[in-house]
Simulated assay, not measured.
Amino acid sequence: MTEPVAAAFALPDHALAGVGSRPFGIYIHVPFCATRCGYCDFNTYTAGELGTSASPQSWLEGLRRELDAAAVMLGASGAVPAAETVFVGGGTPSLLGGDGLADVLGAVRSSFGLAEGAEVTTESNPESTSPEFFGRLREAGFTRVSLGMQSAAQHVLRILDRTHTPGRPVAAAQEARAAGFEHVNLDLIYGTPGERDEDLDASLDAVLSAGVDHVSAYALIVEDGTALARKVRRGDLPAPDDDVLAARYERIDARLAEAGLSWYEVSNWAKDDAACRHNLGYWDGGDWWGAGPGAHGHVGGVRWWNVKHPARYADQLAAGELPVADSEHLTAEDRHMERVMLTLRLRSGLPAADLRPGELVAAERAVADGLLARADDRLVLTDRGRLLADGVIRDILS
């Protein structure tokens, strides 16, 4: 382990008290991208934007320092918790190459160690992968890979500013499986301006031909400050249509269900035992340390987030400071709202006993309207309710 930093940010005793008794994961944010996609508002930087101010090497050194400091902090009142899940996201983690990602996982092992049977995921851009890349990941200990496909239609990819060729994601998924990955996810985005029903069908055909055991499908959201938002504002592209989005979601759900992938969260489908355990930790209120520029963490009702720029991130850690930009202590009300918001999105549903009397009345109205169903003592979104999930949750909490 490298010399841990002296952290100005500190978790209170009440947050540390339950460490190890709750699910614990580590999220690592890789902020580097080869190009910037027009719809993306994540904390990412191209080489041209960074210049010489930051590099993968300075980022990795900062990451090692942050993880070491995190292990010291979380182990202050007991044993350092072993990571039950690790998720390397971005950005484009695959730009680090197989050896670079092996170094990242090595840093986690050095600071925290991995629990028996840990789930270790990395996101990857299909264009920066190869059979050798996947082989190196398996050798290093990664157990799961998530590939950004978005669409199989070239004109849709062009609107999204995606640079991969339409057939590459399927080939990459097959290479990952050949390398020994049992768990492979493909990401889809639906509702892009110009996308037709036949384009979505082609994307689903491609996904199913790849033999993956997990699919994430997200409606296109036009985020403020993105190139896509500027095109919509100028009238160059139409905004996504809600009715079209709903129809596309139903189409996706039907095709995936027919192929044996069941929804377990509103935007995620998986075969048996293939749900992403790391993301379930978020939705079930677990603990995780978010490492890297702009990463968010949560332990015992305390949430924090790091500074965004990779150069400042590395500099603060080199100076002996944790790079935390700000933090908040969640109140009982905050935690209740988040539990309702997140747990109701899961197929397992929300225990009715977790709702307050007025909220339960609103939930019963949703049951009468066919948006929620009772499954023993739990409330679960119906098929129609999933289309209106945000509204259902808003009505319950209002």
Rank of each mutant, 00 (worst) to 15 (best):
M1G: 12
M1P: 14
A8L: 15
H14D: 15
A15D: 12
G18Q: 10
G18H: 12
G18K: 10
V19E: 10
S21K: 13
P23D: 01
I26Q: 07
Y27E: 10
P31V: 01
C37Y: 04
G38F: 14
G38M: 07
F42W: 11
F42P: 03
F42A: 02
T46V: 01
G48E: 06
L50P: 10
T52L: 13
S53F: 12
S58P: 12
L60K: 03
G75A: 06
A76D: 12
F87M: 07
T92Y: 13
R109F: 01
L114T: 03
A118Y: 04
A118K: 01
S128Y: 11
F142P: 02
R144Y: 14
G148D: 02
Q150Y: 03
H155I: 01
A173K: 06
A176S: 03
A176G: 08
A176M: 03
E182H: 06
N185W: 06
G194V: 12
D197S: 11
S203D: 05
A210E: 10
V222G: 08
A229D: 15
K231P: 02
G235S: 05
L237G: 01
A239D: 15
Y249Q: 01
D253E: 15
R255T: 03
L261H: 09
W283R: 05
P293V: 11
G294C: 12
V302F: 01
W305L: 09
K308V: 00
Y313L: 00
A314E: 14
G320D: 02
L330A: 08
A332W: 13
E338T: 01
R339P: 08
L346Q: 13
A352Q: 05
A353N: 02
L355A: 06
R356W: 09
L372N: 07
L379F: 04
V380W: 07
L387D: 02
D390T: 03
V392E: 00
I393L: 08
R394D: 14
